Simulated assay, not measured.
Amino acid sequence: MTVTVPIEFNQEIIEELVQLTKQKIEEEQTQQPNLNELPPYPTRKQLKQHLKIGDTRLNSWINHGLKIIPFGKETRFDREDVKLFLDSLKI
């Protein structure tokens, strides 16, 4: 035996769901770092601050293939190389 129960939503519920969905998407976007906000060739300090990581993690990424640009006494990164490296970490 099959029982079918139609579910009907009134316009208020639909609008509330839309608003909650928009809020959740905006929250997710603000929590994720946007690499395009970095300068084209950020320093170690800028990259760590932007990605909210420490020296240990950054050094590990460098050891696992993140390309660096020696620039006098400091190290810089190509923003596009960082994006490609982070994309390669995706599971």
Rank of each mutant, 00 (worst) to 15 (best):
S88Q: 05
L66G: 15
D78H: 08
I69R: 11
T75L: 14
R57C: 02
N36E: 00
G72Q: 03
E12D: 10
L66R: 03
Y41P: 00
K24Y: 07
V5L: 08
E26P: 03
R76F: 13
G65I: 03
L86D: 07
H50A: 03
H64V: 04
H64G: 00
K73D: 03
K52V: 08
T75H: 14
P42G: 10
Q49D: 15
G65H: 01
I7Q: 13
K52G: 06
H64T: 10
P40G: 02
R76T: 10
K67P: 15
D78R: 15
E8W: 12
Y41C: 01
T30W: 00
L89A: 05
L51A: 10
K83D: 06
P39Q: 08
N59S: 08
V18I: 15
V18C: 05
R79D: 01
V5M: 04
S88R: 02
Q29R: 15
N59K: 12
Q32V: 13
P70V: 12
I7N: 11
D78A: 11
E8T: 15
T30D: 08
L38S: 02
I68L: 03
T4C: 07
Y41R: 07
L86W: 10
Y41K: 08
L35G: 00
H64Q: 14
I62V: 15
Q29W: 12
E27L: 13
P42V: 05
P70Y: 02
Q23Y: 13
L20S: 00
M1F: 13
E16Q: 09
T21A: 12
D87R: 00
K83H: 07
R79G: 01
L66T: 13
H50G: 07
V3M: 12
P33K: 06
N59T: 12
E8D: 01
G72Y: 08
K45L: 11
F9L: 15
D55C: 05
F71W: 14
M1V: 12
